[in-house]
Design a protein around this nucleic acid. Structure first.
Lengths: 152, 152
DNA sequence: AATAGATAGTTCGTATGCGAAGTAAAGGGG
DNA sequence: CCCCTTTACTTCGCATACGAACTATCTATT
């Protein structure tokens, strides 16, 4: 049975506990992605998909994945260590770097896309298009109502 | 303008990108809570609220907050270091511990509840009850469709 | 009572992400 | 051409959470 905290000591005190549910749902999805492939993680899958077959500039990847520079830098480090991507200097800008997939990264990317498709299907199962649309709209509203410091 | 990745290299490849949005929204809310009070963080506020005025057993807190034992242990450590809570041995069970609020913890809890109320209001603003209900139902479905390993 | 098994927490290593601060290259006056 | 600001990343310390493995205690079974 689900934990309902019937004694009135719920995390938020009342209501649908959206903050709590949002947190839990996100962690469960993250864990589900981990469980899929071997070395796959949600963050790495996202990077692989964002990088794409043709590679991408780091400066582009941050906004794409909604990651700050330090998080992106570390993620790329770990993906490099895992042999999924490589850094290439930007010949036109000494500060900038491209990220390109390795052969293993290309294979992992295909799997990641496949996994994302399956996961998405499982996430919308049992909900009407209207409901899914409302959920997506709500998530986007949350994102837009709480912008990152830098973007504000 | 929002990043739309118009070249077809979106994180999920197509669709509403629910996984991505869920992740972003959760991080934004978390950051928003951080920004509220001084030492406040989402996890700590959750703990303070779950512990409650009368304190709670660690074994209860895990399910309440949907945290595993290691995460809860560390969270309590940090909250102890911050002077918000204390551990008390369970007289009836040498393995078990109670967590109780300190005076500072009680004050922080009141603020946390206040912040949670305000945050919740901001989260549902502009959405109908039906939409909010659909969102909550979806988040719960996600949670229930991807149970923790242990609970499965 | 002795022992096997379950339960409650802790510790450790890893992944993820953030903000603050540092480094290096690019750009824009003067 | 030099200096100052901006931009692109990196590094560092911290918070959060997970799984694996460990310790200590309790429970049930024999």
């Amino acid at each position: 049975m689900t934990v309902t905290n019937s004694e009135g000591e719920r995390p938020t005190g009342r209501g649908p506990r959206l903050v709590y549910l949002l947190n839990v749902a996100q962690r469960r999805v993250q864990a589900a992605i981990q469980g899929e492939g071997e070395g796959t993680t949600a963050a790495r899958a996202g990077l692989l998909m964002a990088v794409g077959e043709r590679g991408a500039a780091m400066a582009q990847l941050g906004p794409m994945l909604d990651l700050g520079a330090p998080a992106l830098s570390g993620l790329i480090d770990r993906c490099m260590k895992a042999g999924l991507v490589e850094r290439r200097p930007d010949p036109g800008d000494g500060r900038a770097w491209f990220v390109v997939l390795t052969e293993a990264g290309r294979k992992a990317r295909v799997q990641a896309i496949e996994g994302a498709r399956a996961l998405n299907a499982r996430l919308i199962e049992g909900f009407t298009d209207n409901e899914v649309e409302a959920v997506a709209r709500w998530l986007e509203a949350v994102r837009d109502r709480f912008p990152r410091e830098k973007d504000r």
